[in-house]
Amino acid sequence: MKLEMKDTPGQLVAALKPISDVGGNIIAVIHQREEKTDGDVLAVQIVLELQEQRLGELLSLIKGQGVNVVRIGKERLLYKQTVIMIGHIMHTDLGDTVDRIDCTGYAEVTELTMVMPAISEPSSARLVIRAVNKEDMEQALGILRGVAKEKNLLIIEPLEEIG
């Protein structure tokens, strides 16, 4: 999730403290200079991991510190990868395959496109997986690799951007 606020002295510290109080995990703090009609204003963007149900609590804590949250980004899982799968995808319990990623809590299959050819031929599917960060994505792909082996499916993983 992303929180955006104006960067006036003391606000950042005031906003960061409650995050750990509610068990949140800060992934990045990004300073941005935003063009506004009344001149440049420094904005701060905080990217963090947090259990959904604790968001309300966090926001009231932050408000209590006198910090003004400008915007809350809804994008929960920032890291996205596409994986293609070939094999008897339906007959090997597709629901379960997707579940094994979803139940991790840190990664999710957010899109699934499937092409069904003639009966008994292998089918192909495209899965879009989202995860909180690169490490979690690696974990999720690892799980998928295991599932694919178990169910005799071929998975075509993305080539990590080099560098």
Binding site: T82, I84, P122, R126, I156, L159
Partner: peptide
Amino acid sequence: ITGIDMLTTDALRLAEEQHCTIRLIAE
């Protein structure tokens, strides 16, 4: 090692739809 002999035309089309493609990569 995984080869390309199990690849389907559908798999390539699915990649293509996302401006991607499939290649045999040694890493």
